[in-house]
């Protein structure tokens, strides 16, 4: 079953079609990799599916409900969360607060009086320990290294307890031990039957992690299917992998 579908999706930037009449599906409980050359529209597609940018034409279907528009505030209700290619944290806050802020009461009025309780702190502790950042819990996020920032953003996404996770280049710039942490997190999500979408350039990671791969080129769908089949596709090799 598909959890997210894009149907005839088109996004135009300054007259150029960044996403061109694209129809794809992201299947429930799968790890789906999106690959393609730079400028092929991968991040634009994820930005559309997560409401960060609007689209001109087409529709997005989430859990069988058709959406003509996707707004960033709604994606939480759709069970979607994401990370960004360029890490976006709450810079004024400590590492712990970056997690606690999403473990909150959603009712604004009660949030006015609500303090984080022990179970929130325990939950944040478990999540931060999972990315080796518990020791840094009181540090302002500005003091973290690039890799630690990337891990914290992933940890914040995990804290959202969503059904669908979009990770935009989660391994970029990470040391091997950090990459292993992210791989473990993704496998853990898979075990929990969550849906994961990875934008990634590392073909070996895609081959090893993903159940399905979507290949984009110039805003269009070039190929999709199992990694072992797609990565052998001559069109994919010609457009993206080279010789």
């Amino acid at each position: 079953m598909s959890q997210v579908r894009a149907k005839d999706l088109t996004k135009i930037f300054n007259g150029i079609k960044a996403v061109d009449d694209l129809t794809i599906e992201i299947r429930d409980g799968n790890i789906t990799g999106i690959i393609g050359p730079n400028g092929s529209g991968k991040t634009t597609l994820v930005n559309i599916l997560t409401g960060v940018i609007p689209f001109e034409k087409g529709s997005v279907i989430v859990s069988e409900t058709k959406r003509e528009k996707v707004k960033p505030f709604n994606i939480h209700a759709y069970g979607i969360t994401r990370t960004f290619q360029a890490v976006r944290l709450f810079e004024q806050m400590s590492v712990l607060d970056n997690i606690l802020v999403v473990l909150t009461e959603r009712n604004v009025f009660s949030a006015l009086f609500e303090r984080h309780k022990i179970h929130h702190i325990s939950e944040a502790e478990a999540i931060l320990k999972g990315v080796n950042l518990w020791e840094k819990k009181d540090d302002n996020v500005e003091r973290l290294s690039y890799g630690q920032r990337k891990l914290l953003e992933i940890a914040r996404a995990i804290a959202m307890k969503s059904e669908i996770y979009f990770f935009d280049e989660p391994f970029a710039g990470l040391f091997p031990e950090m990459r292993k942490i992210v791989i473990d997190i993704i496998y853990d999500l898979k075990i929990q039957d969550k849906t994961v979408v990875l934008i990634e350039h590392d073909i070996e990671l895609i081959r090893g992690l993903c159940d399905r791969v979507i290949v984009m080129n110039a805003g269009t769908l070039l190929a999709e299917g199992k990694p072992e089949d797609v990565l052998k596709d001559k069109r994919v090799i010609a457009a993206y992998l080279g010789d």
């Binding site: 960033p72 505030f73 969360t81 709450f90």
Partner: peptide, 13 residues
């Protein structure tokens, strides 16, 4: 105050 857009994405009303 840091980012309204990211706040929306993480479910803050």
């Amino acid at each position: 105050g840091d980012s309204e857009e990211v706040s929306k994405i993480v479910g803050i009303n």
